[in-house]
């Protein structure tokens, strides 16, 4: 079943067309890679899905519902979570609080019941605590729960960002270069992690990545962008041998650089 659908999505910044006529149909449970040279418009597509940028033309549809132009936080509530290319954690908050913040959107209690610690709120807060701890454990971060997010080492920050995104209870997870700055062993572990959480949380994943070994090993389908235009789509094998893709990458180096 189609879960996330982008129809003829176009984004123009002034005279520059950053993304033109982009189409994507993510099936439920799929793991799709979005690749392309620097500046191809990959992150822009994430920003268009979450309405961080307004779509110039086209539609974004989640589970049959048109979410184009919906406010970013509402889109998150509808079930799309993301990570950022340049990690954006809440640096001065603890790892646990980073995750707990992401549960806030499902909170039902009012401000006053939170302030006066009414039973309804206390119960919800307890649930948030438990779920947040569980998430940290799932990603092996439980012993860092009281550390400030900003003081964690890079690899752990990436993981924490993923667990924070998972806390919003997404259907679709958008990962923006999760392997950036990681060594091959770490990347391998990350691949395993992505496969594991995808299964455990029933996720559909859209992945932007430069590390081709990661993309080729875990993605079921791949879409290739260059200068905002989709130049190829297909199975990893097909993409690897696609002459147009190779040409697009030649300027920036080998496909396996």
């Amino acid at each position: 079943m189609s879960l996330l659908k982008l129809e003829h999505v176009t984004k123009r910044f002034g005279g520059l067309t950053a993304v033109s006529d982009f189409n994507l149909d993510l099936q439920e449970g799929e793991l799709v890679g979005l690749i392309g040279p620097n500046g191809a418009g990959k992150t822009t597509i994430f920003n268009l899905i979450t309405n961080t940028y307004l779509v110039s033309e086209g539609k974004v549809i989640l589970g049959g519902k048109d979410i184009t132009g919906m406010k970013t936080d509402r889109i998150t509530a509808e079930g799309i979570a993301r990570t950022f290319q340049n990690i954006r954690l809440f640096g001065e908050l603890t790892a646990l609080d980073n995750v707990r913040t992401a549960f806030h959107l499902r909170l039902k209690s009012s401000v006053l019941s939170a302030v006066f610690g009414l039973p309804g709120y206390r119960k919800e807060e307890k649930e948030i605590d438990d779920k947040a701890m569980l998430l940290l454990k799932t990603l092996g971060l439980e012993k860092y729960k009281d550390d400030l997010a900003g003081s964690l080492p890079y690899g752990l920050q990436r993981k924490l960002e993923i667990s924070r995104a998972l806390a919003t209870n997404p259907k679709v997870l958008l990962l923006d270069e999760p392997a950036a700055g990681m060594n091959p062993e770490e990347t391998l572990a990350l691949a395993a992690l992505i496969m594991r959480i995808r299964k455990e949380f029933n996720l559909t994943v859209l992945l932007i990545e430069h590390d081709m070994s990661l993309v080729m090993s875990i993605c079921e389908r791949i879409v290739v962008l260059d200068h905002g235009v989709t130049i190829a789509r297909g199975l990893p094998k097909e993409i690897q041998n696609n002459p147009e893709v190779i040409t697009a990458y030649l300027g920036t180096g080998d496909l396996y650089a």
């Binding site: 950022f84 954006r88 954690l89 640096g91 908050l93 913040t101 806030h104 959107l105 995104a165």
Partner: peptide
């Protein structure tokens, strides 16, 4: 926590549903 997340990073806070 939602208020503090806004102080820390508005973009991320909004993306986390705040």
């Amino acid at each position: 926590r939602a208020l503090k997340s806004i102080r820390e990073d508005e973009v991320a806070a909004e993306a986390m549903g705040v």
